[in-house]
Design a protein around this nucleic acid. Sequence first.
DNA 1: CGAACTGTTGAACAACTGCTCATATGTTCA
DNA 2: TGAACATATGAGCAGTTGTTCAACAGTTCG
Lengths: 121, 121
Amino acid sequence: MTEPVALCECCVVHEETVEAVRQVMPDDGVLFDLAELFKMFGDSTRVRILFALQQSEMCVCDIAALLGMSKSSISHQLRALRQTRLVKPRRDGKTVYYSLDDEHVVGIFAQGMLHVCERRE
Amino acid sequence: MTEPVALCECCVVHEETVEAVRQVMPDDGVLFDLAELFKMFGDSTRVRILFALQQSEMCVCDIAALLGMSKSSISHQLRALRQTRLVKPRRDGKTVYYSLDDEHVVGIFAQGMLHVCERRE
DNA sequence: CGAACTGTTGAACAACTGCTCATATGTTCA
DNA sequence: TGAACATATGAGCAGTTGTTCAACAGTTCG
């Protein structure tokens, strides 16, 4: 064996700190999933959809009208939100109603709002 | 005047719902800023940086070593995080130490983790 | 069944993102 | 001052993302 762990080409200035933090870091898989989740909140169209659904269950047409966008684009975004299990569909005849599928959406928004509103004063 | 509000080409299935939700929707500016904020959490490199900084103040070299990435890419990401005021730099000689600049980062992560961990069982 | 309507899907494309590489800035110390 | 080091930055490029357009699928009702 050569060296214990090949870190990177650069000098590690504080080896102990790096090791200590490394111990506590969650699995990369978890952090990847976390990033995937927040990616859903990282687009204003999806943010507006999620915000709207906090108020009321809505169909694709309603959301498209509310946001002034095409039904197709809304449907595409709803699919992404469905796959991340942030929203869930409920079919009633021709219409598909969407609603939030996660109690934490509200909490995530609340925390984000605190940051945004502080910075906007 | 032609029609009250030109919504979109599609039929509005539930006009009252749409109007009610529209009343409560925050300004587009706020929702845009919110999306910009969450965009920072929507990349695994940045997520790992923010997670690491929850544990300890670190310099660019340390973070690069921890994550096994180039100092340049870390520096680029730190700039983005700085601009969103999620991290702040502290210069000490040649070294620049970064730390969290927002008490809400922890809360946002906590909410996100709840979602991710539930879905991973 | 077939027309009308709601929603979904795939391809195409322009815009954006994150990394690398080369270079520049800022600090220390001999 | 100049060499060495830590970090920052800009250009370039491949990969990703969000929208549009056209076509398709599921439901209702005459």
